[in-house]
Nucleic acid binder design. Structure first.
Lengths: 215, 215
DNA sequence: CGACCGATTGACTTGTCTCAAATACGGTGG
DNA sequence: CCACCGTATTTGAGACAAGTCAATCGGTCG
């Protein structure tokens, strides 16, 4: 059913997919590439409030105007549905509403966890937290899971990272240099990151889930 | 149907309603009082990630463990349902899942808007933003809507405000003093706030929706 | 009255921002 | 293949907003 309705749209890096305030006629999900959800103030200050990766859902069934800007960070392919049709489908297919609810609850948890990052972590921990997100994503999807060692490409520029972490790009750059100096990460070029020890990175991020007590 | 299942629980101010990590056997909504959603780090730093007011929903159908602490800030009455029963109801009544989805989307928007507050606003704007939330809530529910003038009681201590805004309580106190000195607000005692001009407050908060350009 | 808790205020420290300059990188055209 | 350009990034020096530590004040409750 969804298959029949869907169509694809492509966006170039830097292109705005949805403007805050605009009426959107479609919902969809990311097929490939990365996009950001951004909130902006009148004086130009802006804050990234979400990072959209493949399989993430975009749009809000039952809502008219978008609240945030959606911007393609890399070249982006989305799989879209006309909103009206999609909403009808939600009404006629209870299972879909439940699935959407689950996804939205996950996003809400992620947003709230990010509030802790923004509010209470220092610059070094913020960078480590962001790197952890990329690392985890790659750890699950790729094959390079050799005993805690990981590598991946940063999908964001320093500026975009700064915007997500609520820092300046200078501070991002400095803290990446410090983490490199301290051996938490290694760099190949500006974008390719090697994490020799994922646990170490997680501890640096301040979420030492694994119970790594620093006595 | 819901009526038959519901039961009430009361909590005293300061009491923890739900511990992060615990399995919760109920979902519910706030009847009266205020509660906070709080995220904590191992070293004790914590960040409030949500403020629960009357009519707000608590709990996550389909999820086992809670992710955040829920703490009663004032005396609190909640109307609860056993989670299992509620989930069955969600499955059998499509309309409920749709309603929950809408509420969750609203919460997600609110969380993301708060990320802008945490990430990009300075202390003065943060305080003004928080006061705006209380003011708006009271403006809609009460009768004191005399030409932009409003008054209300702060439901939170300075410490709790600091925790929500990601500031220290000293900074909260100082900025409240400054807003008072500048005539943006007046205080009666420590908790009762008078807002002579709501538009002014909104401008101070940085979200000048009304287009109030400061040339 | 005295103890206690929340709030205010002050003096000093510090992490991050700001402004500025230098450097590396990727792509383009000769 | 190389020189050149624009953009992304790094690095430095100084400024400033908010944090920290500490003292005081005010109200409330036993």
């Amino acid at each position: 059913m969804l298959e029949k309705m869907k169509y694809c749209r492509s966006f170039e890096a830097g292109q705005t997919v949805i403007w805050a305030g605009d009426e959107t006629s479609f919902v969809g999900s990311v097929v490939s590439g990365i996009a950001t959800l951004t909130q902006t103030m009148e004086d130009g200050r802006s804050q990234m409030v979400g990072l959209l990766q493949p399989s993430d859902f975009v749009g809000r069934p039952g809502r008219d105007g978008a609240v945030f800007n959606v911007i393609a960070v890399s070249d982006l392919v989305m799989c879209c549905f006309r909103k009206k049709q999609f909403e009808d489908l939600v009404h006629s297919t209870p299972h879909i509403a439940q699935r959407l609810l689950e996804m939205t609850l996950d996003e809400l948890d992620a947003a709230r966890e990010w509030m802790l990052v923004l509010g209470r972590k220092n610059a070094r921990e913020k960078i480590a937290s962001l790197l952890s997100i990329f690392a985890r994503r790659d750890a699950s999807s790729s094959s390079n899971a050799r005993e805690g060692r990981l590598e991946f490409d940063l999908p964001l520029t320093r500026e975009a990272m700064a915007n997500y972490l609520s820092l300046t790009l200078e501070t991002v750059s400095r803290q990446i240099s410090v983490l490199k100096r301290d051996g938490v990460i290694q760099l190949q070029g500006k974008r390719h990151v090697i994490v020799p020890d994922l646990d170490r990175l997680l501890i640096e991020a301040g979420d030492d889930d694994d119970g790594g007590m620093i006595v």
